[in-house]
């Protein structure tokens, strides 16, 4: 009796193991991404951020935002300064985004790719959900002291189709992220730095610097001053509540 395994069965086994290994890798990668998110912020929180746009000649323009987030996809950012932007609020519920301008007096539905403040940051950067909510990990590369995660957007409603995220092995925190369009064009690069203890065991970067080949010489910096775990009612994340966000502080 010939005990040789037919070649087509060998091929099937090989493909099965290859597929299984790839699935395990992706699963590990997604698990790693969830850990990155957990290290970056609590599930529900309030946060104070300063956004600084820097022009090639060194001129700066600063914006301060108060942000609240609940769960996977509910988020509001309120501009506290400068005076020309004070009271502006952007609400995100999943893929839906609205902008409230006090003078206009009503929320206007906006698209995620638009920029509320000008410069390198767009609405999605300001109202960024957890990475694991919007992306799947399709490849993990061990680079010694870091992992390189290749992320693919879960839907076409996400602002950037692909991300290349470098994660520090020791802290499981991102150090840099390259953001790509569907066409494969590099839109911007984010650089996280200056890890800081925000209390309650949260140690994360307090500075995010962004540059973009589309804005040569321009940079944007985001400084995080306070990230605090806090629970909010779901109704806070509604159009009717948008003009009252300041009262949460």
């Amino acid at each position: 009796m010939n005990k040789t395994i037919p070649y087509y069965l060998k091929g099937m086994f090989f493909l099965f193991f290859l597929g299984h290994a790839a699935a395990s890798l992706a699963m590990d990668g997604n698990q790693l991404l969830r850990q990155v998110d957990a290290h970056m912020q609590p599930a529900s929180y309030e946060m104070y951020r300063k956004l600084i746009n820097i022009e090639p000649d060194g001129a700066k323009k600063e914006f301060v935002l108060y942000t609240v987030k609940k769960g996977e996809d509910k988020m509001v950012a309120l501009f506290l300064s400068p005076a020309s932007e004070k009271g502006r609020a952007t609400l995100r519920l999943g893929d839906n985004m609205w902008l409230y301008i006090p003078n206009v007096g009503k929320p206007i539905r906006i698209t995620s790719l638009q920029s509320v403040v000008g410069g390198v940051f767009n609405n999605s950067d300001i109202l960024r959900l957890d990475y694991s909510v919007e992306y799947n990990v399709i490849k993990v590369e061990d680079q010694g002291s870091t992992y390189l995660l290749e992320l693919k957007a879960k839907s076409n409603a996400v602002a950037y189709d692909g991300l290349m995220m470098t994660v520090d092995k020791k802290t499981i925190l991102p150090t840099s992220i390259q953001c790509y369009a569907v066409s494969g064009m590099l839109i911007k690069t984010l650089h996280y730095s200056k890890n800081k203890d925000f209390g309650n065991g949260l140690v994360r970067p307090s500075m995010l610097e962004t540059d973009s080949p589309l804005y040569k010489g321009y940079r944007s910096v985001m400084l995080f001053a306070e990230v605090k775990e806090k629970e909010f009612a779901d109704e806070v994340f509604t159009l009717n509540y948008l003009h009252k966000i300041d009262e949460l502080r």
Binding site: I52, D57, G58, K60, K61, S81, L223
Partner: peptide
């Protein structure tokens, strides 16, 4: 005219307290 100073960043949260 906007401030053209050195590339240093600071954020005093007390300035924006409610």
């Amino acid at each position: 005219a906007p401030c053209r100073s050195e590339d240093e960043f600071s954020f005093d949260i007390q300035e924006v307290r409610k």
